[in-house]
Structures are given as structure tokens and as C-alpha cells.
Design a protein around this nucleic acid. Structure first.
Lengths: 165, 165
DNA sequence: GTTATTGCAAATGATTTGCACAAGG
DNA sequence: CCTTGTGCAAATCATTTGCAATAAC
């Protein structure tokens, strides 16, 4: 976990008069140990490996805090569970593309996209505070080669693709 | 309700071997009588005014059908309930801006935005099938004039702004 | 000590579903 | 008839919350 995150979290905790607890530390560590997105349930499982005492309730409560602190962002990938994205500190205005073939989520940042959206927003009489773009797409590699390593990998690992809503 | 919608719905019903029922008709009519977005619950209320027998379960089941038929689209406006958008037939690739001051949802279409997103997607090795953009924005009018008629209206009507998640 | 935090289990709230009855074709 | 559709109430499932016990500071 980057020092940057720890720093911001400490600030937040001090500012709000909160306390450092083992459970919280474990959950935070679990959240930022990888740059992969996760659901509350997935985070719960990860956190348990660090601190067997971590409970689902505390995971949910901590998620709320981390979102409030601006360290985590809720994103909508279309499932029935909320997905959390830990990468907004590194890439403050990135967006998501979801491959409908293999379920892979690709993050992308593009200045032009941001600029154009600002433009459109201003034209409508507003000031853009946040934009989220989700693109559902199919894999060109799969179509052209008949195969795509991500699809194979995700099938093998039994990884959830698009969960039902 | 446009004839176009009725037409497409009839096709769908025939193609799938479904049946025309009063409840369904009432719900469909309620869904397309206005071009406003709605939640399942809101649709249920509207439908009840047309057919007192319509039940919540049938509303949910019909919503599923309408989405499957491509007449309605689920969109994410951030609340705890799914929002349904009946305007994708008229504006097949429109997007949404949500005013954080008054909760108003503004639809917009922009060729350039579409084009640019296609571009970005292709560069990533994918083919875009659907894109959804949500922009959270604040009202410039409110900031400059200290007032915004939408805000006033929504306050007066006690209309839900952004429901908690 | 005082107040925030936790785990548990119960509550919530949106949506889904099993089932027996009703009704389209 | 035969199958699909319906309302109801019960079930689901993610998330939230009340509470008594625990732990920061």
C-alpha cells in the first residue's frame, strides 16, 4: 500500500476524531494491496486472511469511510453488488470498459474525452464535477482469431463475468 | 404512446409466443405515456391508475420483458432503485447529466462524444457496443443568480433528489 | 473514563420466485 | 384444453442498523 494512501487516511481519521483499530487497518490493507476492483464480499474475504476477526459489518462500515475520505470510489459495473475502485488516486479521472466476452474490466484515461464532456456540460448550463463512462465492448481479438487469452483464463478460473442484476 | 413502440412490442410478443393481457397493456401504457424516467415503484403507481389490479410482481416482470425487447433501458442514476429510461428509441445513444443541486436529469446526445469513445475503444482493441455516460454537475444558474427554478420546484414538490444508496 | 468501534443477529428494502388460480389463444 | 400470466406472500440477497460488549485515546 502506498504511503500516500496511509497519509490521507491518517489525516481523515484525525480530522474526524476517529480511531485506529486492527480491523480497520486490515481492511484498508486488503483494499489497497492490489489495484483490482472488488466488491464488499471480496474485500471481506481478503480482509479475513489478514485479520480473522474482521466482520462483514465492519467491512461495510469501513468501505463507507474510505469512500467518504475519497480513497475509494463506488463504480457501477452492472452487477447486483457495488464495485469499489481503488485506483482513483493514481488516475483521478479514468473510466471503464467492460468486455462482454470475457468480463475483463479495462481502465482508460483520455484527456480529450474529459475535455469534450466538460464542453458538452458547459453548453447545457452546468459545471461538471464528476463523469463516469462505462463502455460495454466486445473483444476484437476474439472475433478475428477466434480466441482471446482473457476469455480462456476467466473460464478456467471460474471467475464471475457479468453477474445477474 | 407512439405506434412505433406498440409495433415493436407486438413483434416481440409474437416472436416469443407471449400473450396480450390487460395488466401488461396498462403497465406498458404507463411506462410510455411520459418521457420521464421512472423506478419500478413509480411505474407501479402509474400503472395502478390505469388498472387497479396491476401488481408489483407483474410490473417487475413486465419491466424485464420491456428491457429484453429493447424498448426500455436500465440506467444508473445512483439511487438504490434501478431507473428505467423510455427514451432510447427516439435518442438511441443519449447520455445523462444529473444536477447535484436540484436532482434534475438532463439527457444529451452528442455525435462527437460517441465518435471519440469509439476511437478510444478501438485503440484499446475492442469494439464498442454500448456506452453510458453519467455526468454529475452543478447548476451554473444557481451559482450565479443564487437561484434556480428547478431547485425551487423540486423543493416545493418534495421530489426525491438523490436517494441514498 | 469517555467515546468510538466491533460483532452479532435482526432489520431493511428492492427485487425475485413458488404456487394455485385465472385467462389468452 | 394447454400454456402463459397473475397476485399473493414468502424468499432472496446486498446492505444497514440496534445493541451490548470491547477497545482506543
Amino acid at each position: 500500500m502506498q504511503a500516500d494512501i496511509q497519509q490521507r487516511l491518517d489525516d481523515f481519521i484525525r480530522r474526524k476524531g476517529l480511531r485506529r483499530t486492527n480491523q480497520r487497518e486490515a481492511i484498508v490493507q486488503a483494499a489497497f494491496s492490489q489495484d483490482e476492483h472488488f466488491t464488499a464480499e471480496e474485500l471481506f474475504e481478503r480482509a479475513r486472511k489478514i485479520d480473522r476477526d474482521a466482520s462483514r459489518a465492519t467491512v461495510y462500515r469501513t468501505l463507507g469511510l474510505l469512500v467518504e475520505a475519497g480513497l475509494l470510489r463506488e463504480i457501477d459495473l452492472g452487477g447486483s453488488q457495488t464495485t469499489y475502485d481503488p485506483n482513483f488516486l493514481d488516475k483521478p479521472s479514468h473510466n471503464h470498459l467492460v468486455c462482454i466476452d470475457c468480463g475483463r474490466v479495462v481502465e482508460f484515461e483520455d484527456k480529450h474525452v474529459d475535455l469534450l464532456n466538460d464542453c458538452v456540460t458547459r453548453r447545457l448550463g452546468f459545471k461538471a464535477l464528476r463523469q463516469s463512462i462505462k463502455i460495454d465492448a466486445s473483444c476484437e481479438k476474439l472475433r478475428q482469431n477466434g480466441r482471446c487469452e482473457n476469455l480462456i483464463k476467466s473460464r478456467l478460473s471460474g471467475k464471475r463475468l457479468l453477474k445477474k442484476r
